[in-house]
Every structure is written in C-alpha cells, then in structure tokens.
C-alpha cells in the first residue's frame, strides 16, 4: 500500500465532505441540527428522556447516516466514470477502500465531537468527564465500518445515486428505530439485538455515564468488531465483484 496514494484519496474524501453541500449537510450539519432540535424537544423532564440517553442516541443516529453518503458517493463516482478513471492508475483496491474506511472513521469521530460539544452547550454534563468522550471516539469509529460496509452493499445493488438514497433506508430505518434514542422495550429488544447500532448505543450510554468497567462494554465491543468486520468484508467483496460496472 503506497502512502502517497492513500493520503491523496483521503484528502479527496475530506475535501468532498466540505465542498459537496449534500454530504456536508448529511454528515455534519444534520447531526448538529438534530442535536439542537432533539435536546430542546425531548430533554424536558416531563417527556422522560434525559440527555444521557439522547446524546448516545444522536451519535449513533449520525453515524448510521454514513450508509447513505457512502452509497451515494460510490454510485455517483460509478455513474460519472470516475471509478473507471481511477482504476486506470496504479492505485490498488486496498488503497481505494482503505481511504474510504479511514475518511469515514474520521467523519464519525467529527460527528461525535459535534454532537457532544453542542449537547454540552445545551446542558449535557456526562458523568464520565472527558475520558468517556475520548473513549467514545474509537468505539464510534469502529461502528462506522458497519456503515461503510452497508454503504458499499447499497451502492452495489443501486443503479444510480438516487436509487442509492432510497435503498440505503433499508439499512438505516431498522437501526434508527431499534438502536438509537428511541426507547427499547422488552418486546422491541428481541429485534434490537440484531442491529449493530444497538451495541454501540448500549456501550456509549454506559461509557458516558462513567460505568467504564461494566462487562457489557467488552461484550458489545466483541460483537461490534465481529459484525463490522463481517459487513465490511461482504461490502468490499460485493462491490469489487458486481458494483464497479
């Protein structure tokens, strides 16, 4: 893997994040707006939802939407002939996919920072202090692998960027309802355990509450690592085999 190529591709993705209005909105402005609205709308004690539940949910919510931007991005590049053009260079598949994974890890971490800072301004004071926030960064980054993998699967089965937007909701909606800030009951938990986002949410909630030593965190991380690895491998394989055409 050549670092020069890898860095060039990561730079491309980071410039895209800033200069493409749709991606900038979905990845950075959307979590910010949601944080402000949700904190105002649902953190009222009468509503029964505390910030310590809302904030982890908002972080997960933001990262889930990476599925859509990843899928749109790949579909757009395929449609515009950019994937073909890139593949006429000596760039390797590992450099290409590696750059997408790294740039999305960075984006996920930026999302955590945005949500936490805004929530802090609006009164959120995590029990964990700064240590919990720092721990939340790598854990969320790990989960972003799932979003990249699902984004690749979405791009593989989508014929256009527009289709990718629609199809990505197949993966976004279940995780949104069963693994963010929407309360999970004993009944819905039976479905939630199949959602990767559920394990991130549970871990983030425990971490931000300062319960670092809870054994559930280790279990959750194990499950997330296994699921993320499997999904990213499937995504890369499917996209490599069927998604470039």
């Amino acid at each position: 893997m050549k670092l020069q190529s890898l860095f060039a591709l990561i730079k491309l993705e980071m410039i895209k994040l800033i200069r493409q209005p749709a991606i900038l909105f979905l990845n950075l402005l959307f979590p910010a707006i949601l944080t402000i609205i949700f904190v105002f709308a649902f953190s009222d004690p009468e509503f029964g939802m505390s910030l310590s539940i809302l904030v982890p949910g908002l972080i997960v919510y933001a990262v889930i939407f990476l599925i859509m931007t990843v899928a749109q991005s790949f579909s757009m590049e395929r449609q515009e002939g950019l994937l073909k053009r890139l593949s006429t260079t000596p760039m390797t598949s590992s450099e290409f996919i590696g750059s997408r994974i790294i740039s999305n890890l960075l984006t996920a971490m930026i999302q955590v920072i945005i949500v936490v800072i805004l929530a802090f301004i609006l009164g959120f004071r995590p029990q964990s202090g700064i240590a919990g926030i720092l721990l939340a960064l790598p854990i969320t980054a790990l989960f972003s692998l799932t979003s990249v993998g699902l984004g690749l699967i979405t791009a593989t089965i989508s014929k256009s960027p527009e289709a990718a937007t629609g199809i990505s909701f197949i993966f976004i909606l279940p995780q949104m309802f069963f693994g963010t800030f929407i309360p999970i009951t004993e009944t819905t938990k039976q479905i939630a355990v199949f959602m990767p986002s559920y394990y991130l949410l549970d871990s983030l909630t425990l971490i931000l509450e300062g319960d670092f030593l809870n054994p559930r965190i280790t279990t959750n991380m194990g499950i997330l690592t296994a699921v993320s690895t499997a999904i990213i491998i499937i995504g890369v394989y499917l996209f490599g085999k069927f998604g470039k055409k």
Binding site: Q4, S5, A8, L9, K11, I15, R19, T89
Partner: peptide
C-alpha cells in the same frame, strides 16, 4: 468539487 489543479494532483499522486 475539486479545482483543476487538485484533480491533476490527485491523479499525479496515484501515479
């Protein structure tokens, strides 16, 4: 979304 120079630099770096 890149400038002309940024596009050229990207492909130059990939080479």
């Amino acid at each position: 979304f890149l400038t002309g120079r940024e596009n050229i630099e990207l492909f130059g770096n990939l080479h």
